[in-house]
Each structure stands twice: as structure tokens, then as C-alpha cells.
Amino acid sequence: MTRWSDRFPDNLRARRIKARIFRIGCSVLTWLSVALLAVLIYHVTRAGIGWLDWQFLNSFWSRRVTEAGIKAGLLGTLWLVSITAVLAIPIGVAAAVYLEEFGGRSRVNRFLDINISNLAGVPSIVYGLLGLALFVRWCQLGSSLLAGGMTLALLVLPVVIIASREAILAVPKSIRLAAFAIGATRWQTVRYHVLPAAAPGIMTGIILSLSRAIGEAAPIIIVGGATMIFFTPEGPMDEFTALPLQIYNWTTDPKQQFQELAAAGILVLLCVLLLMNASAVYIRNRAQKSRPW
């Protein structure tokens, strides 16, 4: 009879070494990805920080580097995100309420469901083409803020719907039953109990989707956002530019100084996004603390 140690020759050393190499490999790649963020931020800051001043924030486009600024882009982005919010938030939340609370499991609702998740996977540039043909040409809105805002609203709508649905789904069923049991209709239950309870989650989702809209350049370019705008927009039918668009424009400029301006623009853009993300995290954490379930 063979002894145990003969049948299983000791191979543990080699296996241990392999396991260790694997572990170290995974960890190195992970920390490299983390370091990438640091490299990226360092690289952008080094190039752009010198250009960040009030003059940069408060000037229009110019051929001279020292006189150029992002005033039009900042205001354009502000307008765009406001229009997007006004359109996408009510429609998105309403659609989410319908799907979660009134939808049931009918064929139509399953179709809606699949449709929305497919829409979330459509590239943003395709939304730009939709906006160009539908809003700019067929509706004859021209390359206006309204056309841009509507395009971005369609773009973020699936994201708003999906995030709102998750927040609504997280509201415990017992609260709904409690309201039904004292003779509330479905809408009363939703209006007074489900939506208030889901509000922090919905808010977080909305902020994150709007921050996506702020960073989008492709659909804006397709819809016809201009780069050389020398006025502040006064109304939704005005022509416009946006911060990401100005960044793109400066990045592709052969002069290095303009590329540095792009970096300064990126710093502003990242600050805005950071603020929005921080507020989303804050809302989420505060809600988690006060939530009874």
C-alpha cells in the first residue's frame, strides 16, 4: 500500500508561489488604475492652474490666448442643464412611478422595460443625430439652447428612470399596505408616502445623471453648438456653446497655450462635477442615517 505522502507529492511550494504572483499581479494592476486618476489630475492641474483666474472665467472666446475665457461656455452649460432638468426630471420620475406602481406585469410594461434598458445603451452621439434631425431640422428650432437641452433630456431620461425606479423599489411594501388599509387610493399612497420616502434616492440619481449631461460634448456638437459665441444667452432660442465644447476646441488647437487653456477649462468642469457628486453622496448618506428601514 502506498502512503499518503507518496500519492500526493508535495507540490505546495510551487502552488504557493503561483498564488502569490497572482495576488501581487492583481494588486499592482488595481493600484495602477488608482494611480491613473492621480496622474490625470496632476497632469491637467499642472497645465491649467496658471490660467485659472477671474479673467478666464469672465471672458468670451478670443484668438489671443491671454484674452480668451469660458464665460459663454459656463453660461451655456448652465442653461443646457437647466432645460434638461426641467424636462427630464418630471418625465423621468413620472415614468418610473408608472412602471413601479401602476405598471403590473402586462406585455406593454415588459416592452417598456426592455426598451428603457436598451435606450440606456445607445451611444450619446446617436442622440445627437436624433436631436439634429428631429429638433433642429423638423421642429425648426435651429441650433438653439432648447434643441440642445431637449436632446440632452432624451439622453439622460433612461438614466433618470432607472435610478428613480431603484429608489421607489427600495421603499418597503409595508408602507404601501398601511396606506391602502386606511382607504388611500394608489395615487394618494404614491404621492404622500412612496415619493417622499424615495426622494433622497431619486435626488441622488438625478444629480448623477445631470452631471453626465454636463460633461457630454458629442450630442452638443452634432446639434450644432458653436464655439465662437460672443454674448451671454438671453433665452432658450439663442445660439450657444458649452464648456465641454470649448475644451474640445482648445484641445484640438495646435498651439500649446490653447491646450493649456483647455486644461484650465477641464479644471473648472471637474470642479463642477465634483461638487455635484459630493452633494449626491451627502444626500445619500444623510438619508441612510435617518431611514427607519
Binding site: P172, S174, I175, L177, A178, A179, F180, A181, I182, G183, A184, T185, H193, A197, R291, P292
Partner: peptide, 19 residues
């Protein structure tokens, strides 16, 4: 059913006050 539940109330297994 809403009219029914106005007259026939219910108390559940787990207390479920509104927040």
C-alpha cells in the same frame, strides 16, 4: 376596493407606521 378599506381597516403583523 378603496371604499371597502375605508370601512374595513387592517392592522398588520409588523407595526408599519408611516415615517
Amino acid at each position: 376596493p378603496v371604499e371597502v378599506r375605508r370601512r374595513i381597516g387592517m392592522v398588520f403583523q409588523k407595526p408599519n407606521p408611516f415615517p
